[in-house]
Amino acid sequence: MRYLAFASRNCKEIFRDPLTLLFGISLPIIIMCLFSIMQKNMPFDLYSIENLTPGVIVFSFSFITLFSGMLIGKDKSSSFLMRIFASPLFATDYIMGYALPLIAVAILQIVICFISAFFLGLSFNANVLGAGILLIIIAMLYIGFGLLLGTYFTDKQVGGIFAIFVNVTTWLSGTWFELDMIGGTFKTIGYALPFAHAVDATRFALSGEYADLILPLLWVIGYTIIIFVISVWGFKKKMKS
């Protein structure tokens, strides 16, 4: 149970950072409000709240990658990780300790984004709960990316890489527009990566089309497993070096 002490420390570090509240919680709400206002003046149905909510929640998970990557990167550069590597904690304790608080952040993002969406016109039904559970699985993908970045890069490098990461995940996820609108290579690349599948799966869950969400969900789970395996392997290697 020592990982709970480590998770508690990481939780405090993340939630006491004002960037968490600003980017992780406030920004998705602001984006949802802005796009909803834009939708009212649009002649076609691009940013309907049913379409927008899944994309914005998945987009907000990008910041989980930033928080986890920065936290591990800072722990490395300040020798804090060295101190706790000298303690009797095991590799699984570290992974659990870093992942658990980020799941808490993800759940908070899901809940707050859905509450905001209800005020913007999303109807509440059982599908929302299903989408919420699905989103927790999707959040694991972004936590995995954070562990990966934090393991291999410093906190300063993570900041720079995140700027690229957030653009890739946003433009290639179909959050702001359907990838079918552009098609071709752009669409092929988009669907070779997990982000568009994450948004699609959430949209299917929210609309109750559960049979259709299996394939995109499998893409997300597959990527999550690969990213976690690489991260844990790299983390264990770093522990021994």
Partner: peptide, 23 residues
């Protein structure tokens, strides 16, 4: 360690309690 390896956003007491807990 050589660098001051403390958790910056934790209080003095929380830092100490954290280390005691992981031991």
């Amino acid at each position: 360690p050589q660098e001051t390896a403390i958790a910056p956003n934790l209080s003095v007491k929380e830092n100490l309690v954290f280390i005691a807990s992981i031991y």
